[in-house]
């Protein structure tokens, strides 16, 4: 049974999406000094994009810190990327970078805090991906 891990900066879009999704999820801390909470053995990561104009730095440094630990990275099964289409060619770029770097599939992309359609697709998609509904405690 896989879990969900996400990063959301202080603008909170991704956090608002995850809250509406209603699944148990672990949030990667914003503070680089904070301890990273324990994560499920296998999980999908939801990650927003913060690139510069050339596409550098698309993956937030907090997420890089998280993935730099081999034991956590070993559990990553897929990534869902977020962003804003108005950024043009770097739209949701963090997902493409993480997928390539960690050799896992990019499952889905959505904008900001997501629409009702995004919510339904991610919910059904994750249930099908893990072949079981997500946990809610």
């Amino acid at each position: 049974m896989g879990g969900l891990v996400f990063y959301s900066s202080s603008s909170g879009n991704t956090a608002r999406f995850v809250e509406r999704l209603g699944c148990d999820a672990v949030r990667i801390p914003i503070s680089m000094k904070a301890e990273i909470p324990p994560v499920p053995d296998t999980f999908v990561l939801i990650c927003p994009t913060f690139a510069d104009g050339e596409g550098r730095g698309a993956v937030p440094k907090q997420v890089i810190r998280f993935l730099n630990a081999p034991e956590r990275r070993a559990g990553l099964r897929g990534v869902i990327a977020t962003g804003n289409r108005n950024f043009g060619t770097t739209y949701a770029l963090a997902g493409r970078v993480i997928a390539a770097k960690c050799n896992i599939p990019l499952l889905y992309s959505f904008e900001l805090a997501g629409t009702e359609t995004d919510l339904a697709r991610v919910k059904n998609g994750l249930d099908a991906f893990w072949e079981t509904p997500c946990l809610t405690t």
């Binding site: 289409r85 108005n86 043009g88 949701a92 493409r96 050799n103 992309s109």
Partner: peptide, 25 residues
Amino acid sequence: SPDSENHDFFSGSGSSYVIGRAVAT
């Protein structure tokens, strides 16, 4: 958002999820 094809692995539509696409990072 040109060149940022829509990935939808979940519904099986959209372009393939295969990675390996060179990106400037």
